[in-house]
Amino acid sequence: MAEERDGIPQIEASELEQLLKTKDDNTVIVDVREVEEYVEGHIPNIPLVPMSSIPMVIDEFDKSKEYVFVCRSGGRSQNVSLYFKDQGFEKVINFSGGMLSWHGETNEGMENVVKDIKDLYK
């Protein structure tokens, strides 16, 4: 995490890949793209909470966790990170290159579309 933008730490694909390997229960990685984009290809086991639905469910997120947000290119996930910061979340990180920079494994389909925020923590 060498870079920070607007107070939000930025990570690259290699750092996200490392986070996925370590599986820390305190770090939650969330894809914030729209359902159609997620279905076309997403990082395996990463849950989807579309950016458009976040304001309606923000109070259900656990402020003690660290969140890493993923989108197509890093723009929407940066905006979600800023929104979380504005809502009092201290530990938010943006995957700066987004799915365009991801060269690891991907899955297609509705693998992990979150219907209840509590499912993020299982």
Rank of each mutant, 00 (worst) to 15 (best):
E4Q: 13
R5Y: 14
D6W: 11
D6P: 00
G7V: 09
Q10Y: 07
E15C: 06
Q18H: 12
L19M: 13
L19Q: 09
L19W: 01
K21I: 10
T22C: 07
T22P: 07
D24L: 04
T27F: 04
T27W: 01
V30C: 03
D31E: 06
V32N: 01
R33T: 09
E34F: 01
V35M: 11
E36N: 11
E37K: 11
Y38F: 11
Y38N: 00
Y38R: 00
V39S: 08
V39T: 09
I43G: 05
N45H: 14
I46M: 10
I46V: 15
L48Q: 07
V49N: 02
I54T: 03
I54C: 07
I58D: 06
I58L: 07
D59N: 15
D59S: 15
E60W: 02
D62C: 04
K63Y: 03
K63L: 00
S64H: 08
K65M: 13
K65Q: 11
E66W: 01
E66I: 01
Y67E: 00
Y67N: 10
S73I: 08
G74Y: 03
G75N: 15
Q78K: 13
Q78N: 12
N79S: 14
S81W: 10
L82S: 14
F84N: 00
I93A: 11
I93L: 09
F95L: 08
G97N: 05
G97I: 00
G98K: 02
M99T: 02
S101W: 03
W102Q: 01
W102A: 05
E105K: 09
N107Y: 05
G109M: 05
M110D: 12
M110C: 10
E111M: 03
V113K: 05
V113N: 04
V114A: 04
V114Y: 07
D119F: 03
D119N: 14
K122E: 14
K122W: 07
